[in-house]
C-alpha cells in the first residue's frame, strides 16, 4: 500500500512538472511553434497528379501551347559530326544530367525564336567531343513537336561567370550547348566549353 502510494505520488509530481513545463513553453513559444507547424505543413505538399498532357504546338502560330514538365524527356539531340545522340530533358538538375542533356528552364524552347541553353556532362556519350565541332557543323534537335536544325557559328572556353551573363532574349533563335571543361576533369570546374549555333531549318510534325 505504501509502495503504491509512493508511486502515485511520484507520478503526480512528474505530471505537475510536465504540465508546468508545457505551459511555459506554450506561453513563451506558441506563435513560433504554430508558425513552424504551418510552414512544415505547407512545405510537405504532396501534389495530386492529374492526367499529364503531351507537349503541344499550334501549327498555325508555331506557338507551344503545352510545355514539357520539369524532368520530362521531350527530344533527342543529334550531332552527326561527332556521331552522338543524347536524350534531351526539360530541366538541368543533377538528377536529370545523369540521364542526358538538360534544357535550362529559364531559356526558350526550340521554335520560340529565343536563346536555348542546354547542358550535358563531358562524357563520351554526351558532350565530351564538342570541341571537335567546326563552323557549319549541324546540330539537330528532334523534339516531340518538330525537328530543328542548327549550324555552328562559334565555340569557345568560357568561365562560369561569363556563362551566367548570357542573355535570354527572343531576338533570334540561338542554340547554346555547354559542358564542363577541361574534358578530362573530374568533378566541379570553373570553366565550360560552349558552342553557339544558329537555326537553319525547321520541320513540324503533325
Amino acid at each position: 500500500m505504501k509502495t503504491l502510494e509512493a508511486i502515485v505520488k511520484r507520478f503526480a509530481i512528474a505530471f505537475f512538472f510536465f504540465s508546468l513545463t508545457t505551459t511555459l513553453v506554450y506561453l513563451g513559444c506558441n506563435k513560433k511553434i504554430s508558425l513552424y507547424i504551418r510552414t512544415f505543413n505547407n512545405f510537405t505538399y504532396v501534389p495530386q497528379e492529374k492526367e499529364k498532357k503531351p507537349v503541344a504546338i499550334n501549327l498555325e502560330t508555331k506557338e507551344i501551347t503545352h510545355y514539357p514538365y520539369y524532368g520530362e524527356k521531350f527530344g533527342i539531340i543529334k550531332i552527326p559530326a561527332i556521331d552522338i545522340q543524347v536524350n534531351l530533358y526539360h530541366g538541368d538538375s543533377l538528377e536529370i544530367l545523369k540521364k542526358g542533356a538538360g534544357h535550362y528552364s529559364g531559356s526558350y524552347f526550340p521554335s520560340e525564336g529565343g536563346t536555348i541553353l542546354i547542358a550535358a556532362h563531358n562524357r563520351s556519350e554526351y558532350f565530351k567531343y564538342l570541341p571537335k565541332l567546326k563552323l557549319d557543323d549541324e546540330i539537330i534537335i528532334d523534339t516531340t513537336y518538330g525537328v530543328f536544325t542548327y549550324k555552328i557559328i562559334d565555340g569557345k572556353v568560357m568561365k562560369i561567370k561569363e556563362l551566367e551573363k548570357i542573355r535570354f532574349t527572343q531576338e533570334k533563335e540561338t542554340l547554346v550547348l555547354y559542358t564542363c571543361y577541361p574534358m578530362n576533369a573530374l568533378g566541379f570546374t570553373n570553366e565550360r566549353y560552349v558552342v553557339y549555333a544558329s537555326l537553319t531549318e525547321v520541320s513540324y510534325e503533325n
Binding site: R38, N42, F43, T44, Y45, P47, Q48, E49, K50, E51, K52, K53, Y69, Y70, G71, E72, G91, S93, S105
Partner: peptide
Amino acid sequence: EHTAIKVTASKKTITIYNMDGTIFDE
C-alpha cells in the same frame, strides 16, 4: 493556403508545381 499555386521546400530543393501536379521548376 489560399491559392492554387504550390511550392515545396526541402533542405536542398525548392520545387514549384504546375496546377496539374507536375513539376514546373526545381
